[in-house]
């Protein structure tokens, strides 16, 4: 039992991260609600999806934490935590705070910045709603609020972090499924946890942290059971800036071709007489 004032002990300049461990999640959605409460985000509709118990469906401009519900084969005598079977998995999703972030790279206004905690922060007073980040995020996280005209996403509770508090979602989580801490420490913890889970026979457990792609890793890692696809986690996310070289090369080639065509045409055909 810890009070609300306890200090995370993390100083600005230290890179922080989440490690969201689905094997500890109980699907209570406290994180989702705590995020909305802390950040004053509105509800995003009252639609019954029929997708298990998930009625908020996805991350978006008004949902910065989102708990996914994955139903599997159910066998009497085997609970969801058993090694043999994955039956009803819950996984709390959030902005990945990419090491190389598509949204941040794409942002023309400088609204998206890298914070002193290594996270990706969208400054709403600078965002102009160009929505270029929206199509540049390989995880489909950031979204423009059409009514407001600006884009929004998880702030990593930078305000709380600066005050030495842990993010609201992590604080609300009753089972410590959402761990918050220093990135390097959590990376180690993730490996230890994975080893534990595998030693319990959960061979399908894995860490989701795409370090092998141009994203170069994320600051909100996940431990999941089963394939990342099930949770809409892309197996090979790429930062769109990797396409830039090819695109500009091709643009330059075409531009030269255009100028050539114009020059040649007018040179040969554009003279009177």
């Amino acid at each position: 039992m810890s009070g609300a004032t306890d200090h995370t002990g993390i100083q600005p300049g230290e890179v922080t991260s989440f490690l969201t461990d689905s094997t500890l999640c109980i699907g209570c959605k406290a994180c989702e609600v705590a995020c909305k409460e802390w950040n004053g985000i509105s509800a995003d509709g009252y639609d019954f999806t029929g997708w298990s118990y998930d009625n908020t469906a996805a991350l978006g401009h008004s949902t910065w934490r989102h708990v996914k519900f994955v139903e599997g084969e159910i066998t009497p005598g085997i609970g969801g935590n058993s090694a043999q079977q994955l039956s009803w998995e819950f996984s709390s999703d959030v902005c990945k705070h990419c090491e190389v972030a598509g949204c941040l790279e794409a942002c023309p206004t400088g609204s998206l910045v890298r914070t002193e905690f290594g996270s990706v922060f969208l400054q709403p007073d600078i965002c102009n709603g160009c929505s270029y980040c929206v199509i540049s995020c390989p995880f489909g996280v950031v979204q423009k609020n059409e009514d407001d005209g600006r884009a929004f996403k998880c702030t990593f509770c930078t305000d709380r972090q600066k005050a030495g508090m842990m993010p609201a979602c992590a604080k609300a989580c009753p089972t410590e499924s959402i761990k918050f801490g220093r990135l390097d420490e959590l990376k180690v913890e993730a490996q230890v946890r994975l080893a534990t889970l595998q030693s319990r026979g959960m061979t399908d457990a894995q860490i989701y942290d795409p370090t092998h792609t141009s994203v170069k890793g994320i600051h909100s890692m996940f431990i999941i059971r089963g394939e990342p696809e099930t949770y809409n986690l892309p197996p090979r996310p790429e930062v769109p800036t990797i396409y830039l070289k090819d695109a500009w090369k091709s643009a330059a080639f075409e531009a030269v071709a255009m100028v050539g065509a114009v020059v040649a045409s007018f040179f040969f055909l554009g003279r009177k007489g």
Binding site: T49, G50, W51, S52, D54, A57, A58, G60, K68, F69, V70, E71, G72, S131, V134, I135, C137, P138, F139, G140, V141, V142, Q143, K144, E146, G226, E227, E229, T230, Y231, N232, P234
Partner: peptide, 20 residues
């Protein structure tokens, strides 16, 4: 309703649509 490696998360698209 189904979330699985074959259907993704309820066949729901992961990427956000352009908002232009």
């Amino acid at each position: 309703p189904k979330a699985s490696p074959q259907t993704g998360y309820y066949q729901q698209h992961l990427l956000k649509e352009p908002q232009w």
